[in-house]
Nucleic acid binder design. Sequence first.
DNA 1: CTAAGCATGTAAGATGTTACATGATTAT
DNA 2: ATAATCATGTAACATCTTACATGCTTAG
Lengths: 183, 183
Amino acid sequence: MASSQTDLAVLAVLSITPTTGYAVRKTIHEQLSAFWSESFGQIYPSIARLKESGLIEATAGGRTGSAQYALTDAGRAHLLDLLSSPPVPSRPRSGTLLRLFFGHLLGPSACADLVQASKTRAEHQLTELAATRALVEAERTSDPTTEPHTRYWLLTISAGEHTARATIAWADEALTELAKLPA
Amino acid sequence: MASSQTDLAVLAVLSITPTTGYAVRKTIHEQLSAFWSESFGQIYPSIARLKESGLIEATAGGRTGSAQYALTDAGRAHLLDLLSSPPVPSRPRSGTLLRLFFGHLLGPSACADLVQASKTRAEHQLTELAATRALVEAERTSDPTTEPHTRYWLLTISAGEHTARATIAWADEALTELAKLPA
DNA sequence: CTAAGCATGTAAGATGTTACATGATTAT
DNA sequence: ATAATCATGTAACATCTTACATGCTTAG
């Protein structure tokens, strides 16, 4: 019942700035979407659990009917524990590659569509990452106190860029290969 | 209740050679593990569903107490439908990048460990893919009838290789960056 | 004023893993 | 013989998404 991965993400986001559950989800969407995702259906129960266990507490501020949460000392300690624990490997599931593996049933043209869609997604992600990168660099010069965190943020952006570029390079190769096959 | 993604994988594997549920899982493990995974807890219920719906049927052969399944005509038609349906995007979840994003809490040395582990995994995957590639090329020359399928198989292997090499290149960059930071 | 966004939560159902139970067959 | 592998299944539990219900606040 304890989804420690979601708890980890929520605790970690709250460790940067105390906010509402809604804003936690927004942050994850805006800043971590390349490698993480959470839905409200996980975040609110997670917050309830964390509050129950005394790892976070409601603080003043925010509007009526909303609550901002900050880590307690126990919460900070637990967060370090979770961060230090080995990452759980995520089961890979690429619908595109599954279909491509059985591509002889689908034909070269439909497969090319799949590959092209992959490429387009990767290109789109690349422009998004570029925008985020610009934002982070700006924040870094305007507010030097964020420096320790932004360095690590940039590392994750770089990871996304490498992966996206690899996808694009592969897609180009695959499209060339597929073009050679008879319809 | 209908996990159409698992049904798709099972149908597709059975379309190549009629086999047992056990062997379906083995094939997925050995040939698709870079981008797909299934457990027995999903495969056997999936087979039961497919049999129930008349998409597969038990055939003779195999040992006592086991059953080999082959696609029916309806099964082949359904498989084509599923293959043609748009791939469901998989929620990204990288425990490594999540931890790295909050790396300032963990410190450069622990982060370097995480990155190094990523790199090692990627290198390991690269050697596995090379072995599979050799196997496929061999099968291709020894039995030319498998040609239509092996071409597509090689495309998925290439995808894995591109991704793995991208991970390694990123890891090297990240390790250099992390080495610059004070402990 | 009204639409968009902020904010919280729950319920139902889909999806997935792990552990267990059971037994046949094959290789050493 | 005996260990490894083949083979099938289920039950419990964990995880996650989607849809719904509700109401406040801010910008146009």
